[in-house]
């Protein structure tokens, strides 16, 4: 799945399949830092919200289990 989000002047496209291949469900923070490094100037708060959505698309089951476990 390819999803697209716009934050300020920057439009992001994400590949859930590629994220699944490169990261584990616990790597969300590392991925966020990587995106921030590659896109200096992007507003961090909406980016984190966007990545939350992207992460749920990439790891739907694992993410839900992780959240249940956290509660």
């Amino acid at each position: 799945m390819n999803s697209q989000y716009t934050i300020g002047a920057i439009t992001f496209g994400f590949s859930a399949e590629s994220i699944r291949q490169r990261y584990k469900v616990s790597d969300k923070e590392a991925f966020t830092r990587e995106i921030l490094t590659d896109n200096p100037g992007v507003d961090e708060k909406p980016l984190k919200k966007t990545i939350d959505k992207v992460w749920r698309e990439a790891f739907p089951k694992q993410d839900a289990n992780e959240e249940e476990g956290a509660e």
């Binding site: 390819n2 697209q4 002047a9 994400f14 590949s15 995106i35 896109n39």
Partner: peptide
């Protein structure tokens, strides 16, 4: 800014591609 439009030499799309209207370039992750 669609990740599926690109492929690396291993046949995988980037995890993220962004287009910045101010600088008019693409950033890859």
């Amino acid at each position: 800014a669609v990740a599926g439009l690109y492929v690396n030499s291993a046949g995988t799309a980037p995890s993220s591609v962004s287009y910045n209207t101010a600088t008019q370039d693409l950033s890859f992750t």
